[in-house]
Write a protein that binds this DNA or RNA. Structure first.
Lengths: 129, 129
DNA sequence: ATAAACCCTATAGTAACTATAGGGTCAAGT
DNA sequence: ACTTGACCCTATAGTTACTATAGGGTTTAT
């Protein structure tokens, strides 16, 4: 299939597919006479792997590492585990930050009695302090 | 005070202060004979306002809007309220995404029995599906 | 007089894309 | 045969909020 079809099937934009290829996350596709990229089902699976990793917010660099690991099936999977754990730590850290942030925003929003002027606005006051 | 002192007092890097100035978030400071930026306490407060907004992950564009609103003390504060509510929505949305993400990562991590090879690794398997 | 510590502008780099310019390919219709 | 439209190509610039660098000037202390 050509890139347009791969794009529709996978849900990744054409630009993104080409970008992943340049970053070395997808193997170089065959080319047609007219230099169009031609993809197999295997290529679709590669792309879906990347997409799944991205949906977990794994960085492109880490995905590259995972792909390399995937290609060494006999090695220990402890490094894979390590990478996932780190990703989990990152997510936990972000969640904590977001919670704190949510609390302050909620509190701020509650101090705004909408029929007020900016001069007396509780939100601006708390941002100012 | 000069930019180095403002940087230490505020906790923003010198580069960031100059960046905020270029983006129009801080008023243009006085300059010394030798063209060094000179800041007053008012400037420090401006910077702290920006910093506080940033700690709530409000975008520079939205901070600019808040500053403009701040300078119209007699207007209604409903637009301020609106902006904060939108920010809260954004944060809530991100939290939901993060929770889903955390769940999948946790589940994946639990399928890895560390003494395995990559070939039999539950993590790689679930990323592949 | 000179060295260290500070400041200046302008520009490039970061992550993970998205968008654009300026072109080539291919199949269908006239 | 020719043109139209849908598709493809590469290379480059833009996005956000910074950070880092190059290549200089200023101030202060010795």
């Amino acid at each position: 299939m050509k890139i347009g079809e791969l794009s529709k099937t996978s849900g990744c934009s054409i630009q993104t597919i080409r970008y992943y290829e340049r970053q070395g996350l997808l193997s170089d596709p065959e080319r047609s006479e007219g230099n169009f990229r031609l993809y197999s089902n295997k290529a679709l699976k590669e792309l879906e792997f990347v997409k799944h990793c991205r949906s977990l917010d794994i960085s492109l660099d880490d995905i590259k590492r995972l792909i390399e690991l995937k290609n060494k099936p006999e090695e220990s999977c402890s490094s894979v585990n390590e990478l996932i754990k780190q990703q989990l730590n990152l997510v936990n850290k972000r969640m904590k930050e977001l919670k704190a942030l949510k609390n302050e925003l909620q509190h701020m929003a509650s101090t705004c009695n909408s029929d007020n002027t900016i001069e007396g606005c509780g939100i601006i006051k708390s941002l100012d302090s």
